[in-house]
Design a binder for these strands. Structure first.
Lengths: 216, 216
DNA sequence: ACGAACAAAATTGTTGACAATCTTGTTCGT
DNA sequence: ACGAACAAGATTGTCAACAATTTTGTTCGT
């Protein structure tokens, strides 16, 4: 196993281990349910076990890692059932954000949403599901950012991180982009119309659709 | 400073430090913004610094503690602004739970809610705001428990922990229990009627009222 | 007296070693 | 051959010492 040294900069070791490990999990380099042995990770990231340990504790409360007493850490696997529950929470929280964004967003920010909508339409027309999925993610991120609701943003980012695997799976399903595109455009329209209730409702019905698709 | 030893049982040191420290913060034994020096805490709880450190990292991601690089930890202070944002998130999440509880709860569980409602009415009639506040908390806990939405339960418990100080403040405000009592009874009625939409709406308008009171 | 430079103290970040626990493979009795 | 008791190995939990950083107090020059 290669000892991948970290930059000799004065970067905090724990921080380094944390970002490296999180990225590795999110990018799927760690197989689901894979054991995460502290010594190996310490070696791999060029830090000591204590730093890896601290990172694991933090990742546990982010929901990315599961730690059992005296039995170590593993990449957490999110069942479909859990994914549904998570998406239900997303539904109401993003609904909240959309409602606030409809009121709080600046005109420039509304333009950004419209531009994103057009790009998404193009991606569907060109049959590029991966591009569409990325834009999808970006749209949701922008909406919650524009809401100014920092607490909701924090919760949503944590929830989203747990769904990476399911998101991929969903995006590549045939016919799915077409259905979700119209829902996304409805969300954008409602926010642009500065109608909080309509915005919340549009987001909720969109994510209700996602839940149906997850259950399949 | 007394060296309060922990029971000699094989209890995990970090776990001990974690629960002790969390309880101390929640019960207000630590002044807001108080510095939390790792050495002192280690001494106080009878564990080593490493354990305290692990506990602090965990408490940070629970939002109870704030840690600054090379500058240590302190009890996090929640501004009114943040309390409002947190309560907005509670509003939509508890709304979700109430809706599900209206469908999922057993008849026995509905009876428990009714009993709680009666106890709350009595507490208000007797002019016991502290008892009322406790029952209030218990009612919300029951509703989210009955929903079976574990993810939402987890998020809500975390959010609630950050509000302890503000909750106290709110409960003792004159006239407040009377107003909130009718809202609570409406919540109970809607759930008992097994009407998800009405239940969600009742919870949301209740917490909207709480937000107004917070802003004051 | 005021402020900058410096030194001392306090505190956090990191490290390697040790103890406790769990897992796995082996031996022994039946 | 089968299962329980046991021993060896691997891995996590804990500890005390060291290094790096920040804060505080002091001195010195103007």
């Amino acid at each position: 196993m290669p000892k991948e040294a970290r930059p000799s900069t004065g970067e905090q070791a724990k921080q380094h281990a944390l970002t490296q490990l999180r990225q590795a999990i999110l990018q799927g380099e760690m197989a689901p349910a894979q054991r995460l042995v502290e010594n190996e990770l310490a070696d791999q990231f060029g830090v000591t076990r204590a730093s890896v340990r601290a990172a694991l504790i933090e990742l546990e409360s982010e929901g990315l890692v599961e730690r059992i007493l005296n039995r170590g850490s593993r990449v957490r696997v999110v069942t479909v059932e859990e994914a549904v529950a998570i998406t239900e929470c997303r539904m109401v929280l993003e609904g909240l954000c959309a409602g606030k964004a409809a009121v709080e967003a600046s005109d420039e920010q509304l333009d950004q949403l419209v531009a994103l909508g057009e790009a998404m339409s193009k991606a569907v027309a060109d049959g590029e599901p991966v591009t569409y999925s990325d834009l999808n993610h970006e749209l949701h991120a922008h909406i919650r950012q524009f809401s100014g609701q920092q607490v909701a943003v924090g919760l949503l980012e944590r929830l989203n991180a747990q769904l990476v695997r399911h998101r991929f799976q969903l995006a590549l399903r045939p016919g799915r982009p077409q259905k979700s595109l119209s829902e996304h455009l409805a969300m954008i329209d409602a926010i642009r119309a500065r109608d909080p209730q309509a915005a919340e409702e549009a987001v909720r019905s969109h994510l209700a659709g996602v839940i149906d698709a997850l259950r399949e």
